[in-house]
Amino acid sequence: MVEPRGMVAEEAPHGHRIDGALNDAFSAVNMLFDAGASLQRVTQGGGTAGLGDFIVEPGTDSTVLEEIAAATGVDFNALEWDPSTISQPITRQRVGMYQRFYGGNMDEGWTRWLLEEFGFAYTSLFDDEILAGDLHERWDVIILPNDSRQMMLGPTGRPEGGRGPDPAGTPPDYRSGFGQEGAEALEAFVRNGGTLVAFAQAGDLILDEFDVPVRNAVAGLWGNDFWAPGSTLKVRVDTSSPFAYGMPEDALATYLAGGQVYETIPGARSADVQRVVTYIDRDILQSGWLLGEEAIANKAAMVSVQHGRGTIVMIGFRAQHRAQTHGTFKLVFNALVGRGG
């Protein structure tokens, strides 16, 4: 099979445009960052440029563009007009992802694979790095893969169900968890301008330890009240959100047991919460098994929360599950490339 080769327009007086709706656009962008290219992102749709498209500034070596087009299959289309009024510069973000020591985390491993597959530079963050504090000085974005609050803070006692060793028997140097001090360091990271991205159950750390006006609408629900153990569900996407650039308005989300669904808590800070993805109002199931759809109808599947000078992105479903959910990869990728401005 011959893989498609991207096209590079020869005459591009105002630079080249990359379609931001393509997952492979992010591979191309990361390769351009590697090559030292200057990039912008469209933040106001106009002309032939769509919201979220990437712009490669004029003067970039055409040989570099040809090599990237060949490697990714992405087209570099010519811009016939000055895009400066509808776009903002972006720079490569310093991305860290939490990796706990105890027991390993499958979701963290799959997320590492996905980031590497699309060329995202990242650092694995261990407990010591988080406990060192001043995280905003070293990272722009921190990812919390799907995991329980207990495992991130540090397990105490034998795991639920009695399976596995008691962490109390592990030598101190090999114990896992960043504790309350680490949770405070992560919140300080956001308040100082960082972006914290939490996948599914990892949101419990934010809901329990941070002061945010959000709650999990399906917390404690089970059985006939609500159950979706591995299902594809219909959602609406606010494509004007920078975290949803390039997404279609109607999409599908993969929901697994342990996922979260969000409601805004009424109050003075309600406006700090923005819905990015919302479950539709009825007939939500596309494929799989869903009981109690009324528990999630018209509720948020993904939110962004302004917190101090930074932002928390909470994705309650599995947008990058086992690197298979290609239709929602961009909801993760958008948080990792910067939003311009």
Rank of each mutant, 00 (worst) to 15 (best):
G6F: 01
A9R: 07
E10Q: 12
E10H: 11
R17Y: 09
G20W: 00
D24M: 13
D24C: 11
F26V: 06
V29H: 01
L32I: 05
L32F: 04
A37L: 06
G47I: 11
G50S: 11
L51K: 02
V56D: 02
G59R: 08
L65G: 03
A70D: 01
T72I: 08
G73K: 06
V74M: 03
F76W: 06
A78F: 02
T85G: 10
S87Q: 05
S87Y: 07
S87E: 04
P89N: 07
I90M: 03
T91W: 04
T91S: 15
Y98M: 00
G104P: 15
G104Y: 11
N105C: 07
W110V: 10
E116A: 15
E116H: 12
T123A: 13
S124R: 14
R138A: 15
V141S: 00
I143V: 09
I143S: 00
L144R: 01
P145E: 01
N146F: 11
M152W: 00
T156G: 14
G157V: 13
G157M: 14
P159Y: 12
R163G: 14
P171N: 07
P171H: 07
D173C: 11
R175C: 11
R175Y: 03
S176C: 10
G177T: 05
Q180V: 13
A183L: 08
E187F: 09
V190Y: 00
V190E: 01
N192C: 07
V197A: 06
A198C: 12
A200D: 02
Q201L: 13
G203R: 02
D204Y: 07
L207D: 05
D211N: 10
P213D: 04
R215Q: 13
N216E: 04
V218G: 01
G220L: 08
L221C: 10
W222A: 13
N224Y: 15
W227R: 11
G230F: 01
D238E: 10
T239G: 08
S240M: 04
A253N: 03
A253V: 05
G259Y: 05
G259H: 02
Q260V: 04
T264P: 02
S270F: 03
D272F: 00
V276S: 03
V277W: 03
T278V: 09
Y279E: 01
I280R: 09
D281T: 10
R282M: 08
D283F: 13
Q286L: 11
S287R: 15
L291W: 12
G292A: 01
E294T: 14
A295N: 05
M302D: 02
I315F: 00
G327N: 15
G327V: 12
V332F: 09
N334V: 00
L336V: 05
V337G: 02
